[in-house]
Design a binder for these strands. Structure first.
Lengths: 338, 338
DNA sequence: TTGAAAGCGATACCAT
DNA sequence: ATGGTATCGCTTTCAA
């Protein structure tokens, strides 16, 4: 019977392979999964493999995991992709390491979803682990949803610990602390802190600001928060009213904001670091290309391998790993702008 | 009977919801999916919804798509994530638009997999569509694997058309053409073209170089390919032997390589654009912050909405859309560096 | 060494 | 208006 027009040919299943090889579906499964427990004769193995090859058979992941009762999916929510080689190297390492441990890494774009919507959508995939890189902040309720859906590990890598989740806390305050220590050490006492106007960055910017405040308070320095958007006009506007602010230093959230502001300050006729010291964070390549070279704070991310093995451990023994806080180190990298 | 220690509580299924609400699984399905064809009394609906809520029930995507015979997964392979706001904005738009059309966007990191391995891994998920953004180049065989696994649309957005796939050809040569036209128009006749040494970028860099060659040939200008890595040392080395090359212009693949090289050239004592004109591509923000401001070529990507609807159309009527070549426009943006 | 068959969770047809 | 049940593709006991 001919296919009706426009009906795609059916996707080959293991039953098709079995029929073609003249064996049962069980045998097909044994052969293709290299089952140790069962001995299959070499001629049979060959026939099965050939049949699979000829049909272009690819197993159906959904059916497999339905049967198995669990997936090997590690879900990586991505809303914003933070720029920077630091982060993307880390991400690549992580994916590579997880794949070596036989996990399937799935990035799930969740931009524009509420926390609850996102958590539900993720839970439908029944991931065995979820790694939240910090752009999205998970609520305790979200974590509960995921765990109820079978997630054996929910790992957050962000400024806040989330109840119920394994935490790799990136202590963003540390970044502010290092910046402030450096600036104060250079004799600066009136410090501005650029706070991005863009939504979704508060989780990072607030603790960085708090870190500066803590150090400055102890040293008798003043701190002024400076809202600024990631755009030339905003930087120019801020630079325009700079002299009125009476600041002798600024910590600019990260290198990108720093470069934007420094450019505007130079264009406004101020000298860096003479009139004002400018400090960034995250050690992006661009900071070294600017003149003056940008002083920055470098944050040490854990290696992808490290995080991957943590995930694997948590999946194997969920009870073992709990509320573990690995603080990440930060260090000032003085260059020419301070 | 108590759970044995360390055994996670079972994930609630629709059967659990049914039991709790005192109805059948069929009814649960009808209610939760707002089935139009069947009338369910309001009290029953409420009981079902409450039960689902109390149990924290989330449907199992694998089971659902196994039954349905097809998924709503749109797979987005990502090996390198090209930097730049242009690209990430596009990606966000695309995801958002696809989700509105009720697709599940899954990014699958395939770094370090061969083409065949990757295609197989993707096929296991039975995506209804695959959108290859061009970092990874698909072979005809890979496309066949995906189609056999039920993919109704395989769309490539890259410099090359792939047999069997719907193509949105980004004509990267156009970028080189615009750059060369601009440089030649400024009177330059000895043009260097920076070619990244990093793997995986040939698909973009080769046609860009070819575009320059085409224009230069017609205008009687000379073209020299200049391999360079994305690192300061490499740029410095290239700048060091610059005078020996006798070039009066350089097109630097993109703004990032351009900025790196321009910095090195300035540090080597050359004047831009006096001694050498420097041109980038992709119009990154950074180009406007450098001094001199970087001339660039801006590439107009299609909107995410556009691509999303193309995908949707291809999924609904696979036969309709074939080998469609949407060339993308590119335009020179002269600033100060040329 | 191989095969028959149960069952994972959700849906939709067919009864009632 | 609601329930029973076959079914999707695959793995894995249990039997032969």
């Amino acid at each position: 019977m001919p296919q009706s027009p426009n009906t795609p040919p059916p996707v080959p299943t293991s039953a098709d392979v079995a029929r073609r090889a003249g064996v049962s579906r069980a045998t097909v499964s044994y052969v293709l999964n290299n089952a140790e427990a069962v001995r299959i004769s070499e001629p049979t193995r060959r026939r099965v493999r050939e049949a699979a090859e000829e049909l272009g058979y690819v197993p159906h992941a959904a059916a497999r995991s339905l049967r198995a009762g669990r997936t090997r999916i590690v879900l990586l929510p991505t809303s914003h992709v933070p720029a920077g080689p630091l982060y993307s190297t880390f991400l690549n390492e992580l994916q590579w390491a997880l794949r070596r441990l036989d996990y399937t890494v799935v990035q799930y774009g969740s931009l524009g979803l509420t926390g609850d919507e996102a958590a539900r959508a993720w839970a439908e995939l029944r991931p065995v682990a979820v790694i939240s890189l910090g752009e999205t902040s998970l609520s305790a309720h979200n974590v509960a949803t995921l765990k109820r859906a079978g997630a054996r590990a929910v790992i957050t890598m962000g400024p806040l610990a989330v109840p119920g989740a394994h935490a790799m806390v990136m202590d963003q305050a540390e970044v502010g602390v290092r910046a402030a220590e450096h600036l104060v050490g250079r004799g600066r006492r009136r410090i501005g802190v650029v706070v991005p106007e863009e939504a979704g960055l508060e989780l990072f910017s607030a603790p960085r600001l708090a870190g500066v405040r803590a150090v400055a308070g102890a040293a008798g320095a003043e701190v002024t928060a400076l809202p600024m958007a990631y755009a030339e006009e905003s930087a120019a506007a801020l630079a325009g009213r700079w002299r009125g602010l009476g600041l002798d230093a600024v910590f600019a959230y990260n290198d990108e904001y720093a470069m934007l502001l420094m450019r505007a300050l130079l264009d406004a006729g101020l000298s860096v670091p003479g009139d004002v010291a400018v400090m960034g964070a995250d050690d992006l390549l661009i900071g070294r290309l600017l003149r003056p070279r940008l002083s920055t704070v470098r944050l040490e991310l854990p290696t992808g391998e490290h995080l991957a093995s943590l995930v694997d451990q948590a999946v194997r023994e969920p009870s073992e790993v709990v509320e573990r806080h690995d603080l990440m180190a930060a260090a000032a990298l003085p260059r020419e702008s301070t």
